[in-house]
Design a protein around this nucleic acid. Structure first.
Lengths: 215, 215
DNA sequence: TGATCCTTTGATTCGTGGTTCAACTTGTGC
DNA sequence: GCACAAGTTGAACCACGAATCAAAGGATCA
């Protein structure tokens, strides 16, 4: 049990990020169970001693690595969305951005979704991961709900739907579809997932998008 | 590598089931990563040697345990559904049966869904589990699609919807919702999940159910 | 009764991997 | 330049758990 320094210099933080990123890569590649500290240290081009020095234990490291990766993914998508004005296009981007990227190398971009699967399983038994997951999902649904509210205010979305309800439903649908895509189910690929989720949103919120915008 | 006997007497098979059931219990309780053979053997009231004797390796045991449990859960639900005549009620039961049972002790019936989370994560890296999962999901969606077809033939469901498409969508929605319920998300419980999934089906297939039947 | 094969046990083996630690390096303030 | 703290290393320690194995139990048939 090493006492963490009270103030963390910049380089210090940078090293943390470096290790977290390496951990995320290793977890996506080998799986949570088979991710060894030695692997992570090697991927981060450092030593096992140092990774423990920063994170205290393997458990903490994994918990932070899982959630940090998802946090960054969210932040990226959030920035993309908030840069758009039209709520319909926001919704489109939100859904598109949630689809595992098919064109990426099989271990590249869908790594985020692989991490989600690991995170879910881990959350069942690790209270720390469970708490972080709850926060991530709440924020994600809030973002969806906000897009809906904006659309309703501008009268491009139906006002019949409760934003929070819709957010929950869409988030669940996306999770379920992404799950199948990530597991390489023969019936669903990234493109079909996008179509289904988008159709659902358009039906529920009663809006249209022209072909040009969609593709 | 012990050669498995060519013909398995009844008692032999019974012992296998006993171990598989114990394994499922242990996995649900402790998690896949932390499930030790010694735990499973103890839960099955037998020895570590014997469990390996029957399954050859831990990997095989886990793979079989995960999928066998889900297989049984499906078979139970399938029997319930096929005993019903009205397709609308079939759909109702199908959805209700998919919801983690809230009234059960926290480690009782939602154990099935906990196993699903573990299974998904495992399928990412274990080809054997991946194959079995694909089969289970295909069968599950086929069952849903069959209910839809029956309903369409009897004109209680809209014929606008492609049964396979609907099956995929509903299955994904159920997965996503059950995921949140299983993780004890504050926004969704079993009851709300049921309502959402059912509403979706009723909207999409354009059918009604009276209050009495629903509850 | 005895022989053979399947079943069952649990102690032993053995590799693995998390964690610790003592030594070394680097940086910072005085 | 010196002192002291933080950063960094990799070898060593240690526990744990999967897999093995030799031995014993028990059924079935001759």
């Amino acid at each position: 049990m090493v006492a963490r320094p009270a103030q963390r210099p910049a380089q210090n933080e940078q090293r943390r990020q470096q290790i977290l990123a390496a951990a995320a890569r290793v977890i996506a590649a080998r799986g949570l169970c088979d991710a060894r500290i030695a692997d992570i240290a090697a991927a981060a081009e450092t030593s096992t001693g140092l990774t423990l020095y920063y994170f205290g234990s393997k458990g903490h490291l994994l918990a932070e690595a899982l959630t940090a990766a998802e946090d960054q993914f969210y932040l990226h998508l959030f920035r993309v969305i908030t840069a758009i004005d039209d709520p319909r296009e926001q919704m489109l981007r939100l859904i598109s951005g949630s689809c595992p990227d098919a064109k990426a190398a099989l271990d590249e971009l869908d790594a985020d979704w692989r991490l989600w699967l690991e995170l879910w399983a881990r959350a069942l038994h690790d209270p720390e991961v469970a708490r972080r997951r709850a926060g991530l999902d709440r924020r994600w649904r809030s973002t969806i709900a906000d897009v809906v509210r904006t659309g309703q205010r501008r009268h491009v979305f139906s006002s019949e739907v409760e934003p929070q309800d819709f957010a929950l439903e869409l988030a669940a649908l996306i999770d379920g579809l992404a799950l199948q895509v990530t597991l390489h189910d023969v019936e669903v690929d990234s493109e079909r997932m996008r179509t289904i989720a988008l159709s659902y949103a358009m039906r529920r919120l009663e809006f249209q998008l022209d072909e040009v915008t969609i593709s």
